[in-house]
Simulated assay, not measured.
Amino acid sequence: MAQLLVRNVDEETVAWLKARAAANGRSVEAEHREILRAARQSSAPSDFWERAARLRAQTAGRRTTPSEELLREARDER
């Protein structure tokens, strides 16, 4: 397993990390790993497709209005 060393971290960030770790019942090192894991996961391309699929499932069967109709209505209101 690789190791990371982070230098020159400001005291405010260190205090925030310690408080977050304590609130989550983890060590600072474990909290740091969790932050990195979450960042990696949130930027994964597959995450987009999973979220898109959930959104499609949530909105399935809903009535939609084509955008050109909405634009036309907005233009006519002026």
Rank of each mutant, 00 (worst) to 15 (best):
A2K: 10
Q3N: 13
Q3V: 10
L4Q: 09
L5R: 14
L5E: 10
V6H: 03
V6T: 04
N8D: 15
N8S: 13
D10Q: 08
E11W: 01
T13V: 05
T13P: 00
T13Q: 06
V14G: 01
W16V: 06
W16Q: 07
W16E: 10
L17S: 02
L17Q: 01
K18H: 03
K18L: 02
K18M: 03
A19H: 05
A19W: 00
A21G: 12
A22R: 11
A23W: 02
N24A: 15
R26F: 06
R26W: 04
S27K: 00
S27I: 03
S27G: 04
A30I: 03
A30T: 03
A30R: 09
R33C: 08
R33I: 07
R33F: 03
R33Q: 12
R33Y: 04
R33M: 10
E34I: 07
E34G: 01
E34C: 08
L36T: 05
R37M: 09
A38I: 07
A38L: 10
S42K: 07
S43R: 15
S43T: 12
S43A: 13
A44T: 05
A44N: 14
A44I: 02
A44V: 00
S46L: 10
S46H: 14
F48Q: 05
E50I: 09
R51C: 05
A52C: 03
A53V: 01
A53P: 00
T59H: 15
A60I: 04
A60S: 14
A60K: 15
G61L: 08
G61T: 09
R62H: 14
R63T: 13
T64N: 05
T64K: 08
S67Y: 08
R72I: 07
R75M: 13
D76M: 14
E77Y: 12
R78I: 13
